[in-house]
């Protein structure tokens, strides 16, 4: 079974300012046994998450609500196992697909086809598996012969279409999203919505961060409200209303 468990997860972003980041200071403090550079040890940091306890089970479609800077994105990145908790433990099982940046790894000068493979590589998919889905991606993105052109010739809408089509082409156990994706024109938007719904219903866990309670009500069955890096509310959506 797939799950994500967070036990008193705290994340502090260190502010490595110039004084802190200098090699000289650290070397000095090594040489002098930590006397000279000592004050710089207490460097500034920003607490993004504060003792988060959270258990996400298979079947949970979790919505994260909160203001800007409340820690939603940080929590997503901790769940993606990009940022390690400064203290506390995060355990997760299942293949994570992060839809946080759809065009990550893509090269502007490379053709659409080449980018399918590049993006696939970043997603951790083997080339022969990507090959099988190339026609599906080509069809869904609706880009057709454009895929033979370098993606710098694409409009921004086409770019997102391609990124979206590749990122959603492979099954995932845990899907992480920052806002529901608004991609392309009205027609594609609908297709994309269908595809996302299909994909998230197949995945056992969805975590969606958003500002909009309506969206979360629609897509999720559980909601967590964050404020200043703390969970202030955790409820099942069906029950509340």
């Amino acid at each position: 079974m797939n799950y994500i468990t967070a036990e008193s997860v705290t994340v502090d972003y260190p502010i490595l300012d110039l004084a802190r980041r200098s090699f000289k200071k650290d070397a000095l403090s090594w040489v002098t046994g930590g006397r000279v550079g000592q004050d710089s040890k207490n460097h500034l940091s920003i607490r993004a998450l504060d003792c988060i306890d959270l258990e996400v089970k298979a079947g949970d479609k979790l919505g994260l609500l909160g203001h800007n800077g409340s820690g939603k994105s940080t929590l997503l990145k901790v769940m993606a196992q990009v940022y390690w908790p400064t203290s506390g433990v995060l355990k997760a099982r299942g293949k994570v697909t992060s839809l946080l940046d759809l065009t990550l790894g893509m090269e502007m000068e490379a053709t659409g086809y080449e980018n399918i493979f590049l993006r696939g590589a970043i997603l951790g998919v083997k080339p022969n598996e990507i090959k099988k889905t190339v026609s599906d991606i080509a069809e869904f993105s609706g880009l057709g012969d454009y895929l033979r052109l370098p993606i710098r010739t694409y409009s921004s809408g086409m770019l997102v279409r391609l990124g979206f089509s590749i990122s959603t082409a492979f099954p995932a156990d845990i899907i992480l999203m920052d806002e529901w994706l608004g991609v392309g024109d009205a027609q594609f938007q609908e297709e994309a919505n269908n595809r996302l719904n299909e994909m998230t219903s197949k995945a056992s866990i969805l975590v969606l961060a958003s500002h909009s309670p309506e969206l979360i009500k629609k897509a999720c069955n559980r909601c967590v409200r964050l404020e200043h890096g703390k969970i202030i509310e955790d409820f099942l959506i069906g029950e509340q209303s």
Binding site: V82, D101, I122
Partner: peptide
Amino acid sequence: GHIIKQVNM
């Protein structure tokens, strides 16, 4: 950096 901050590889 941009990849490391987004994907765990």
